[in-house]
Design a protein around this nucleic acid. Structure first.
Lengths: 249, 249
DNA sequence: CAAAATACTGCAAAAATACGCATATTCTTC
DNA sequence: GAAGAATATGCGTATTTTTGCAGTATTTTG
């Protein structure tokens, strides 16, 4: 492995987690701690990150994201993505809908776990293609310009041939009694199809979206198996979902 | 093997994998490491890649530059793309295979002409999605990591439902008597299917690729309707194709 | 404060590189 | 064509870079 590659890897990790541990990287890349230490020292001198005792941290966390609001949302999505990772097991077939939360999840999929991923989302496919351990299958069809996912009969048709282990179904709105709703009719059709193409449906959803309502209905809350939010399990926002035979993470 | 060929090969590898190891390339091409070292040094000075200890890495690896892939042979490819544009008419359905030349073509598609584009190529789809006048339909399927296009039965199946007006079929090698050939078997199957999915097949091809030969055959030269190169029509390299009932641009 | 974890230093082996030079190949020029 | 120039390639050797290891110093933590 080239030194340059290690540098890229470290910077990427720092970019995602905002911090890295010396020993973790050394284990991950199968090189000695000293090597990583030297790498981090170089990157520190090049002002690409900040060296600290035991590892390194991102130096531009506040500088990179100008609006404090967005950081917050991104942090939530990171949290959700990390929780979602725990549901995935080696060798599984997973189905990823579009959305930024799922994109965060895709970025974090571990690079040593063999997986098969189906997705109709262009940005997610691009992200996943960068990982050599993941077999990516794109659900083809007409591409929607604003959501960047494939829609239409052809895509739904392709979905009908799939039975994935888990579907991560990003959603715009979730409501305890009204269920999951969407703004776009075509996307609703896609998501309905995706639900039928997986044994287990998990919905990653930041708390802002809880309780909101859109024009069209995808399904009831009882049709999904788990809801992942950034909240702690005892948060009152989740009360409405608590006796609904649905896993809350 | 010519030096230019090696340079192309190296740049291609870097383009695909973002990195190359000196020793790998030397083994692959059966030349000494010194030769490759010198090649990489030249390419480094020409700012086509970045030389590092042990190999080389892509220039745009860490800068977030999704569009500016690589500038290799760009002028030639631009010329070809411009010529290809002349074949496209308002309202047509076009089918674009993968490859950097087609990517250039996609980038140049006029933003006022209504078009429907089918493609199995991830980067091309991303490019086209930016243009609001174009309806993009992605040919889904298993994504090949190297070529970033969808391959396999599912993709070929989807192609069988299409009859486009023109197919722009990028090719790795074209030979007057041996026809179009490819390195990868799966991609050959895709391209065969694409030929059958269009009324007219046009092959954009930079002159370096003329006369070269790969492992597997896609089709004979007589099966394509036009060949677009960056050369002038009277160039002697094209002599072999001149009495073959094929349009030369 | 003491134990554990982490950092630094010097060193040696291995790998990669630079350089000079001999040989082979290609390109000119006549 | 053929001689000569220019370029490209491969090999041996000296030099530099990288990397892991061991010993010692420093920081963290309970």
């Amino acid at each position: 492995m080239l030194k340059e590659e290690r540098h890229q890897f470290i910077l990427n990790e720092v970019g995602i987690h905002n911090r890295v541990l010396l020993t973790d990287i050394a284990n991950l890349l199968n090189v000695s701690v000293d090597t990583i230490r030297r790498d981090i020292k170089e990157l520190h001198n090049a002002k690409q990150l900040k060296k600290v005792h035991g590892g390194a941290i991102s130096l531009g966390f506040n500088n990179y994201n100008p609006t404090g609001k967005k950081i917050y949302s991104l942090e939530k999505k990171s949290l959700i993505a990390e929780k979602a990772l725990g549901l995935i097991k080696e060798g599984q077939v997973i189905l990823l809908s579009g959305g930024t939360t799922n994109l965060e999840l895709a970025r974090r999929l571990p690079s040593r776990m063999k997986l098969t991923c189906f997705t109709p989302s262009l940005p997610i496919a691009v992200q996943l293609l960068g990982k050599s351990n993941i077999e990516v299958i794109f659900i083809g069809g007409r591409l929607s310009q604003d959501s960047q996912i494939a829609i239409g009969g052809s895509a739904i048709n392709m979905l009908s041939d799939i039975k994935a282990d888990i579907c991560f179904l990003g959603t715009n709105s979730i409501h305890a009694t009204e269920g999951l709703t969407e703004f776009d009719w075509e996307i609703v059709q896609m998501k309905k199809a995706m639900i039928h193409s997986a044994r287990k449906v998990v919905s990653p959803c930041i708390s802002e979206k809880i309780g909101s309502l859109q024009r069209y209905r995808i399904c009831g809350v009882e049709e999904i198996d788990a809801l992942i939010t950034e909240l702690e399990p005892w948060d009152t926002k989740l009360d409405a979902f608590k006796n609904m035979n649905i896993q809350l993470l």
